[in-house]
Every structure is written in C-alpha cells, then in structure tokens.
Amino acid sequence: MLINIDRHIMETLSKTEVSIIQYINDNEKELSNMSIVDIAFETFTSPATVSRAIRKCGINGFNELRYKLNLPKDNKDLISINEIMKKTLVEANEVLQRISLKDVLDVVNEITGAVDKQIYVFGRGPTEQVVREFALRLQLLGYNVLATEDPTIMVKLSQRSNNQLVILFSLKGETRELIKVAENCYLNKVNLVVITCASSSPLLKYASHYLLGYYHKKIAIKEFDVTSRIPLSMISRIIIDYLVEKNNDKV
C-alpha cells in the first residue's frame, strides 16, 4: 500500500478523498506513468481535490508521492526520470524555504518606491533570459525599466549617481562585471537589489536588499555553465506577482 491511512487521517478525509486514495493504492504500478490530471480524470474529480487528499495524508504533493514509489529495478528510464523530477522538486522547495517573506516585502517596497526613478536590471550569461522577462513585466506594470546584458554599458550606467534603482540577477554571484556594478552602486549611494543563490557572493555586501535562493549542484551539461535558472525565475515571479497584487489593491 503506497499511502497508509490511520484512523486519525481517515476522519479528516471526505468520501471523495477516500476514493482518490483508494484509487492510488489500487493502481500503484501505473502511477509512475500518470499525472495528477490523469488521476483526477479517472476518479471524476479535479487536480486540486487530488492534491488536497494527498496532502491530508501527510505527503507534500503529487511529485513527492510519485518519488516515494518503489520503481522496478530493471526500469532504468523510469528511475532516471524520477531522479530528474526529484531534483526540480528539491530546488523549488529549497527556494521557497530560504527566501524570507520580510525580505520579499523589502524588495517589493524598493521597487514601488522607484516608480519615479530609472530602474536598471542586469544579468549575464543564461541569466539574461530571466532579466529580460523580469524587466518586461515591470514595464507592463508601468515602471521605467532598462535591461541590458552588455558588460560595458551596465558598468557605465552604474557609475551614475542620479535617481535610480539597480537590480542584479546572478545565480552564483561571481560574475566580475556584476561585482563591479555592485561596487559602483555602493560608492555612488545607489540602491541595489541582488537576487542570487550564493550566500557567499561578494555582491551581498553591497546590496541594500537581497533575496537568496538555492540551485542544485548536480549539473546536467557539465562542460558548460548552463545550470538551471529556475530558482531565479521563481523569485522573479514572486516579486512580480506581489507587485500585481499591490496594484490591484489600489484599484
């Protein structure tokens, strides 16, 4: 039995949720090939109901449930896919656990306080995609934003001491040009927000506020620095979504 239900748990479950857990236990062998949508379809419920039933049984969501499966030892493909999904799950959970709600609010307040300022968003390498998306969303919210990945331009812009806010995205926090930007901001008393996954990054000592995420050390393509930027994208989304909520509250 994949999910054990004691008397206490049973008392918290509705009849529909009991039927979902029963279906999962009866179809354990097929579960590794199914999604939460498939289970909802087979049980005539919704993905939200399936997720709620699983969580009531002390399991933190469908992905954790699937990871707990005892996969056949001779099915290397299923084992490999399961490990990959586990890596993403660990990364996402660690990001949510490590970022402080107060720090998120501090960063959001920095941005809302810069509504009449020039906001610069910088990042290098694969992080540039996160930078572009974040900057675009800020622009759609009405902020005056300039994003660039050009090292010469970002360093020169950071030397200005006028009315501005600088936001740096850096996975490992070691990029030389970004460190120079951070130094310039500190010297020119420009507010600096740093979003990184490196607690030992030199960027942090120059930041007015920062958010720390987490990235998995197991790299898929070892020859190149193409570590997943999912943690940075998650933090970016949290900031933007909260800004949207604040805008809606004003309406």
Rank of each mutant, 00 (worst) to 15 (best):
L168P: 06
S233L: 15
K102A: 12
D241F: 01
S208A: 10
F224G: 06
S236H: 07
K189G: 05
L178I: 07
E128P: 00
I195V: 15
R229M: 04
A147V: 00
S228N: 08
S208L: 09
K156W: 01
V181Q: 06
L178K: 07
Q139D: 11
K222R: 08
Q139R: 15
A135G: 15
L178E: 03
R132I: 00
T112L: 08
N247W: 06
N109L: 12
Y214H: 11
L204H: 10
K246R: 12
L140S: 13
T148I: 00
S200D: 14
V108E: 10
V181G: 09
E245F: 09
R176W: 03
V181A: 06
L187S: 15
L101T: 11
G142Y: 03
K180I: 13
N248A: 14
H216L: 07
E110K: 12
I119L: 03
N188K: 15
L138F: 11
I221A: 09
H209C: 14
N109H: 14
Q118S: 09
I153F: 02
L140I: 05
D116F: 10
D150K: 00
Y215F: 14
G142V: 10
K156Q: 10
F134I: 08
N248M: 15
P151E: 01
K117Q: 13
T196C: 09
N247V: 13
N247C: 09
V107D: 13
E133K: 10
